[in-house]
Amino acid sequence: MDTSAEQEFAEYFDARRDTVRRTAFLMCGDWHRADDHAQAAFVALHRHWRRIRGRDDVRVLDAWVRRTLMRSVVDESRRPWRRERFTPEVPDAAPARDAGDGVATRETLVAALRSVPSRQRAVLVLRYFDDLDVAATAEALGCSEGTVKSQTSHGLAALRAALGDGIDDLRPAG
């Protein structure tokens, strides 16, 4: 890559690395894995930098990185060893959930978000944390707007179930 292209990539990386890392964390729920996914997305971006059309527009690059990031998280969640959860003891009963009188704390929300299937989690993160509309989310994920709407609905239902009955204010935005 020539020097000007390297400089362009470095500027984009410096400007967006924290946002991409945060999005990755919200998708996977673990800071260490989020770092890995963000790194994988930026490595892929660097590798394809010269071939990306419209790279002078930050929105094009953001969409490219989001799509790469989402694919990385979803692919990793499909690996068999990610489905196993080891605990030191088997509990006799399910642990009681305390959502603080119906208000989910950040930790409670992130934990509940981890229980949502990865594709639905990606849609929820892009829609509600990255504040993308249905069309932009569909473009980022490479699917139809109807798929985004149904995944949003199913994801919010799964999130409500994970948070318990006290959470009634999670409604899909039109």
Rank of each mutant, 00 (worst) to 15 (best):
F13I: 03
R33M: 09
R85F: 07
K149A: 04
R55P: 15
V20K: 00
P91A: 02
A93K: 07
H154E: 09
V73R: 05
P91M: 00
H48D: 15
G102P: 11
M1P: 14
R79D: 01
R51T: 11
R106F: 12
E89F: 02
W31F: 12
D131K: 08
Q7C: 07
A34E: 08
L45V: 10
F129L: 11
R50T: 14
T19G: 00
F9A: 08
A24N: 00
L124A: 06
T137W: 00
E6Q: 00
F13R: 05
E6P: 01
T137G: 02
T152M: 13
R67N: 08
C143G: 12
D92C: 01
E145F: 03
T87A: 11
D36H: 13
D130M: 03
L141K: 01
L69H: 08
T108K: 14
Q151G: 06
V65Y: 07
A34M: 04
D169L: 05
R78K: 10
D133T: 12
V74C: 12
R121A: 11
R127Q: 06
Q151I: 11
G54M: 15
A41S: 10
D130Y: 00
T152D: 15
R59Y: 12
A138V: 08
K149D: 09
Q7K: 13
G29I: 07
R127A: 03
L156E: 10
Y128N: 03
R171P: 10
E76C: 02
D98T: 01
A104E: 02
W49V: 13
C28M: 12
W49C: 09
R119W: 05
D133W: 05
V60D: 12
A162L: 13
V90P: 00
R171G: 08
G166C: 14
L45Y: 11
A63H: 15
Y12A: 02
W31M: 13
F42T: 10
G54K: 14
V116K: 03
H37R: 12
E8L: 00
S115F: 01
P91I: 01
G164F: 14
R127G: 04
H32R: 05
R127F: 04
A24D: 09
L156G: 09
A135I: 15
G166L: 14
A94D: 01
G29M: 08
V148M: 00
G102N: 02
T147I: 01
A94G: 07
A44V: 10
E6K: 09
A24S: 01
H154A: 13
P95M: 09
D130Q: 08
H48I: 14
L156N: 11
G100T: 13
Q151C: 11
C143Q: 06
V20F: 04
A161H: 15
D98R: 10
R106K: 11
T87S: 04
F86L: 14
Q120I: 06
D30T: 06
P88V: 14
K149L: 06
A161G: 14
L69W: 03
S144E: 05
R51Q: 13
L170N: 07
D57N: 14
V43T: 07
A63D: 12
L26S: 01
G100F: 12
